[in-house]
Nucleic acid binder design. Sequence first.
DNA 1: AAACATACCTCGCCTGTCAATGTATATTCA
DNA 2: TGAATATACATTGACAGGCGAGGTATGTTT
Lengths: 107, 107
Amino acid sequence: MSIASDLIRGHTETIILFHLLEGDSYGYQINKSIQFRTQGQYELKEATLYSAFRRLEQNGCITSYWGNEETGARRRYYSITSLGRAVYEQNVRDWQEAKTLIDALLT
Amino acid sequence: MSIASDLIRGHTETIILFHLLEGDSYGYQINKSIQFRTQGQYELKEATLYSAFRRLEQNGCITSYWGNEETGARRRYYSITSLGRAVYEQNVRDWQEAKTLIDALLT
DNA sequence: AAACATACCTCGCCTGTCAATGTATATTCA
DNA sequence: TGAATATACATTGACAGGCGAGGTATGTTT
């Protein structure tokens, strides 16, 4: 993992929400997807991932349900809500703005 | 202030180091400069600023000395060290990389 | 005299990340 | 067969940076 915790901090929830825009998914899958998309440069730590799920569900951005796997380990699937979609959109806007600001302050 | 704490987290020290590249300065001045450069969109909280100074001095990125003001409140000036310059350069590289990664994970 | 600007500093809380640890199932391979 | 590995979820407690609240002191403006 090459990105520092403090630089990713605050983006975990948005990353998860973005993934869920493409359809319901579960923790392990989401993390594998992140690893794949960043060519192994980044992965969420499990504790970080699951605490983010808890927050997102508590504030109504996602809902969850158990998958009915015939075989293999059980999976808890997550769905994004309409609130979650709105929060995602806002977070992306905030990120675009923050990027510009930080760039202006660092260089 | 429009930027969330979690998005700025980890950049405070780099922002300070960047400011000091242009010459010795002191806390109040650095903060005013940030406010000016961001047109009031951002300011460091004083507690954040001074705790960052403490960390930076402890790990050898900056040194400090009292200014000899004839009048007005006393000022503690800070100088960037060569280590500080190197850390700044590395942090900016990390930021460029993180930006790309986060962009890829959010959109 | 009161208000404001300049200038510094500290204490203690809050929150997100993460290391460590634990549980359970299925597959691979020696 | 048994050990290792992959899949999959979950909790606990520590850590660190940001910051609200509070404090000190000087100088200027109204």
